[in-house]
Amino acid sequence: MASTEFPQPAASPATVPPAGPVLADGETSRTVTLPGLSLLVRSRGHDLRAAHAGVREPAMFVHGLGGSSQNWSALMARLAGVLDVEALDLPGFGHSPPPDDGNYSLAAHARAVVRLLDAEARGPVHLFGNSMGGAVVVKVAAARPDLVRTLTLISPALPELPPQRTALPTALAAVPGLPALYRRVTRDWPAERRTQALLSLCYADPSVVGPAERAAAATEYQRRVDLPYFWDVTVRSTRGIVNAYTLGGQHALWRQAERVLAPTLLVYGVRDKLVGVRMARRACRAFRDARLLTIPGSGHVAMMEHPFLVERAFRDLRQEMAARTRGGAGEGSVSATAEMSTSTAASGS
């Protein structure tokens, strides 16, 4: 359920003022102010007039617990030539301040995404979500199908019972008293140690992140920990995920997945320590128009570890949708896409 603030090793962050977000070459950022809400939005080659004119289809990326829009920089760079790409920092994360109402439930995060898309008239978008962000965008797609062209879910935080043992420490952050105990135990940990712990949790192979990127990640981690609201946001958002897992009826996340109409790409890492690859089979049954990419060498953040494979699978999906529009593809194209994507991942290309 966690995500990270780590930059993709291949990206070379540009120099930016210390108070602002770290931007990769070609990226810009802006702040969108809505009633009770202020959101940092990261863009790459974004031109609002061109987007409204339909020159490039819009895409929105939503990060996971503990992450930010920076998690999507590598994938955004690969897709910027065909899509109008943007990623937001959810309320209280990255460089977005906490919401006025202090609500960090999955429903509140989903409302923030919807309000942003409505305010800028960007829908329908290709909607991407990782981990907690995956659960958030499922709620968006279920409630507002008019806003979603396609849905790409990377290790989505959908209910997994029992959870993997390696995911239990993250879930325990929702237990009253334990976050305070953890803070006392780890208060003398340097940022580098915290960074290594997150890398080991979220990456299948943490060694792919080089020394320069680790140093940048540690600096960003320390900035976040020093924010007066960091622990409150983390704990409340974790509780929001756990609470969502307990909901029944039409509000249950798996029930909402069944309501999604948009063509859906599911991406799972075989070595994911937080969301088990065993959930891929259930997800394929739940989403009515699904195709699957499994990556043997990936952990929890495939868009950072293997952006090429995620890009390729999404391009396959987009081409499939174009063929459907032309009337040249039927139901058989779904399983064909899934088989091709899985074999590509297995080859390690």
Rank of each mutant, 00 (worst) to 15 (best):
P176S: 07
P206T: 14
P163D: 01
L117I: 15
A157F: 03
L227A: 15
E220M: 15
L127H: 09
S131W: 06
A143S: 13
D100R: 13
P206F: 07
F128I: 00
L198I: 14
L147N: 04
Y203L: 15
R184W: 08
R214I: 07
D188G: 12
Y182Q: 14
A142D: 01
A110P: 01
A217S: 15
T195Q: 11
C202W: 04
V138W: 03
A107N: 11
L201I: 03
R165S: 11
P163G: 01
D146W: 04
R223P: 01
R224M: 05
W231G: 13
L178F: 12
H109T: 10
A215I: 13
P162D: 06
M132F: 10
A167Y: 00
P124V: 11
R149F: 04
R187C: 05
V185Y: 07
V225W: 00
A212K: 14
V175Y: 02
V209D: 01
A107K: 05
A217Q: 11
P162Y: 02
Y104W: 11
D146H: 02
T152H: 03
R111C: 11
V225A: 00
A212G: 14
V113I: 09
T219G: 13
G177L: 13
Y203D: 07
A121Y: 05
E120G: 12
R144L: 07
G177I: 10
Y229G: 09
A135S: 13
A204Y: 08
P145K: 07
L198P: 04
G133A: 09
P211Y: 07
A215N: 13
L201E: 06
L178E: 03
R149A: 12
V209W: 03
A204T: 03
G134I: 11
A135P: 08
T186F: 10
L116N: 04
A107I: 08
W231Q: 14
P156N: 04
P176F: 01
T195M: 06
R184Q: 12
V137S: 04
L227I: 03
W231E: 14
V125D: 02
W231L: 11
E192L: 07
Y104A: 03
G134K: 08
T186L: 13
Q196H: 09
G177E: 03
E192F: 03
P124R: 03
T195V: 14
P206A: 13
V185F: 10
V114R: 02
L147V: 09
L181W: 11
R193V: 11
P206G: 09
R183C: 08
S207W: 06
K139G: 14
T150V: 07
Q196A: 14
V125P: 04
G102M: 07
R194A: 13
N103A: 09
F230T: 05
V114N: 00
G210D: 15
L198G: 12
P176K: 09
L181C: 12
V148P: 00
S155R: 02
P124T: 11
A215K: 15
T166Q: 08
L168A: 12
L178S: 12
T152P: 05
A110W: 00
R214H: 00
D118E: 15
Y203T: 07
A174S: 15
N130P: 10
D205L: 09
L178H: 04
T186M: 11
P124G: 10
L227F: 06
V114A: 10
P98T: 14
P159C: 02
P98F: 03
R149V: 10
L172I: 13
V175K: 00
V209N: 07
T186S: 14
T170G: 02
Y221A: 12
G134P: 04
S131I: 10
